[in-house]
């Protein structure tokens, strides 16, 4: 039975299984701290509980897109001379981007719900919200580009260049609250400044960030392995089709 299960989990390993359990357990703790034990905010009341999902989502999205940018840059620099390394870099860039898109989507959804309680509206086209949705659509485009049928190297290179261009939007999203007037609040935690939180709220937030980061890491590793399997399948599929057509042609001649 255990043997069969191990065969079934194609993208798992002992390390990722452990990571999976750890992230699952920490998510349960986030539910408890976020919904039950953390205090009400003096201004926002219970609505502050959405902080513990909204903020980790966007931080992970930023982190994922930065990984995509770094690995895309390395791909452009190294893939031509080292094809195997190039495929590895491309897989990391692709899987990180997909996770970034999922977490940006969740940022938008959790933010809209939070906005409904605090601002009084789900959505406004202010600079932060507009640039965030632009970032979401841009990386959706990046993921679509990765599906575009082409020679794998050409496709990956094209995607890497688009990813590098898309990176320009990251600082714009982050600093939009400083550069323009926005309905969205400014950054609460910035390097070198005292956080604008009391400790009970800050600790719950930081724990949630750690927990969701573990989840994102688990997702990223599995997504990477799935991309690798899909590449093998694509190559095998093409080889088989070529063999079949050749056989057909030989019979016909």
């Amino acid at each position: 039975m255990q043997q069969a299960e191990r065969k079934d989990s194609m993208t798992g390993s002992l390390a990722t299984t452990t990571l999976g359990w750890a992230s699952g357990a920490s998510l349960i703790v986030v539910l408890v701290t976020g919904l039950i034990t953390s205090p009400k905010d003096a201004n926002q009341g219970e609505a502050v509980r959405l902080l513990y999902v909204h903020v980790p989502m966007i931080w992970i999205a930023y982190g994922s897109f930065i990984i995509t940018a770094v690995y895309s840059g390395l791909f452009v620099a190294k893939a031509a001379s080292r094809p195997d390394l190039g495929r590895h870099l491309d897989r990391v860039a692709g899987s990180a981007a997909e996770i970034g898109v999922v977490f940006t989507g969740l940022t938008l959804v959790s933010g809209a719900l939070w906005g409904r309680i605090t601002w009084g509206v789900y959505w406004q086209w202010d600079a932060r919200l507009t640039t965030t949705v632009l970032m979401f659509v841009t990386y959706l485009g990046y993921l679509a580009l990765r599906k575009l049928p082409a020679d794998p190297y050409v496709r990956s290179r094209r995607a890497a260049i688009v990813a590098l261009i898309a990176t320009v939007n990251l600082p714009i999203v982050h600093y939009s609250v400083d550069w323009w007037r926005t309905l969205h609040q400014g950054a609460s935690i910035t390097v070198g400044n005292k956080p604008e939180y009391t400790n009970d709220i800050l600790i719950a937030l930081l724990f949630a960030v750690v927990a969701f980061t573990l989840v994102a890491l688990w997702l990223g590793i599995h997504r990477y392995r799935v991309i690798r399997l899909e590449e093998i399948r694509e190559e095998e599929g093409i080889e088989m089709a070529i063999a079949a057509r050749r056989a057909e042609a030989e019979v016909g001649s």
């Binding site: 079934d8 989990s9 999902v53 959804v109 719900l113």
Partner: peptide, 30 residues
């Protein structure tokens, strides 16, 4: 506001769970 908060948590945890399952299932299928 509790209804909205719970909806938010539900969507976040539900989406991440569904995405995780889809990744694992895709890996198994391939």
């Amino acid at each position: 506001s509790w209804g909205t908060i719970l909806l938010g948590y539900g969507l976040v945890f539900g989406t991440i769970g569904a995405y995780a399952l889809s990744v694992v299932a895709r890996g198994r299928r391939v």
